[in-house]
Amino acid sequence: MKVLLVTGGAGFIGSNFITYFLKRNKNYILVNIDKLTYAGNINNLRSIENNPRYHFIKGDICNYELVNYVFRKYKPDHIINFAAESHVDRSISHPSVFVSTNILGTMTLLEGARHLWGRHGFQGNRFLQVSTDEVYGSLDNSNDYFLEESNLDPSSPYSASKAGADLMVGAFAKTYGLPVIITRCCNNYGPYQYSEKFIPTCVLNALQDNSIPIYGDGTNVREWIHVQDHCIAIIRALFYGKPGQIYNIGTGEEVSNLEMAARILKILDKPQELIRMVKDRPGHDKRYALNSYKIKSNLNWSSKIKLEDGLTDCVRWYKSNPDWFKE
């Protein structure tokens, strides 16, 4: 069997990916390294914890000795790096944590992969870096879209740390020939998302009849994708993507923060008056929007879950799983 190493697999996107991947790829062993910070929940993976093809290691990707131990023991054929500090507000308060995990942790993985795979010339290996559309910065009008070749112009310590990691990944490809792929996705939503993120925040507050805080005037626009569509895109990039390439992953479904909150309140049959405008955060990007033609045309991927349907199912999941939020 081949071995896929996933980092950050107890988080929102990582746990959804692991569950989806294991069910559909019977010829793979999957190894998951996760530090289990506040945003990581091992219970997200309860359905597959006894699967003999799944192995969990609690640990920090910044720990060079641990990473080398895992590489020596399992000898992964491929690596997908989901591990990241990912909340913009937290990065403004504690930027050094983001630099440590997102840049230094990524470099530790790259070094391990270089030494392990370099012995046989990197044949049959892939290192996939899961990045974000936020590395491109902000679009100030409704007509432009970011291409994979667009300049990196991050606005927050979070997005700057992810941009730094992307540059390090690209440098390892150019310097050492490491077979890397970078994916940059728009905003995800779906089950198991940590409560500090925008959609869970809206749902949790609405269910308790608390006000929903919206930064600024609420006109900041985000492009949204269901996490399952993102997982499928990552698998397409891993198996069919070309090493050295970057792939934007987007749906074209753009919604302002104010409109998203209003949609959630409508689904829950709650009053729109629960929306409360608050002071804008520093460096708040106006709009993200991706041109995803490359992954659609080259890798035959397209999103399947429409925002209207996916959001309704997502909100119902949160409503039906109060114990998960209490944990």
Rank of each mutant, 00 (worst) to 15 (best):
H226E: 10
H226R: 08
D229P: 13
D229L: 12
D229I: 12
H230D: 11
C231P: 02
I232N: 00
I232S: 00
A233E: 05
I234Y: 06
I235N: 14
I235W: 02
A237P: 02
A237L: 00
A237V: 01
L238Y: 01
F239V: 01
Y240G: 01
Y240L: 06
Y240V: 02
G241T: 02
K242A: 04
K242W: 00
P243C: 02
P243W: 01
P243L: 02
G244H: 11
G244F: 02
G244V: 08
Q245C: 14
Q245M: 14
Q245V: 06
Q245T: 09
I246Q: 01
Y247W: 08
Y247P: 12
Y247R: 03
N248W: 01
G250P: 09
G252N: 08
G252A: 02
G252W: 03
E253M: 07
E253Y: 13
E253H: 11
E253A: 03
E253N: 10
E254W: 00
N257C: 04
L258Q: 10
E259S: 07
M260N: 06
M260S: 07
A262I: 10
A262G: 15
A262K: 15
R263Q: 09
I264N: 02
I264E: 05
K266G: 05
K266N: 11
I267A: 08
I267D: 04
L268Y: 06
K270L: 11
P271V: 07
P271A: 12
P271H: 12
Q272K: 15
E273K: 14
E273R: 14
E273L: 05
I275E: 04
I275C: 08
R276N: 09
R276V: 12
R276S: 12
M277A: 07
M277D: 13
V278W: 13
V278Q: 09
V278M: 11
K279R: 12
D280W: 00
R281K: 14
P282I: 03
P282A: 10
G283S: 09
G283I: 01
H284Y: 11
K286I: 13
K286R: 14
K286S: 09
Y288W: 15
L290P: 09
Y293M: 09
K294F: 10
K294G: 00
I295C: 06
L299Q: 05
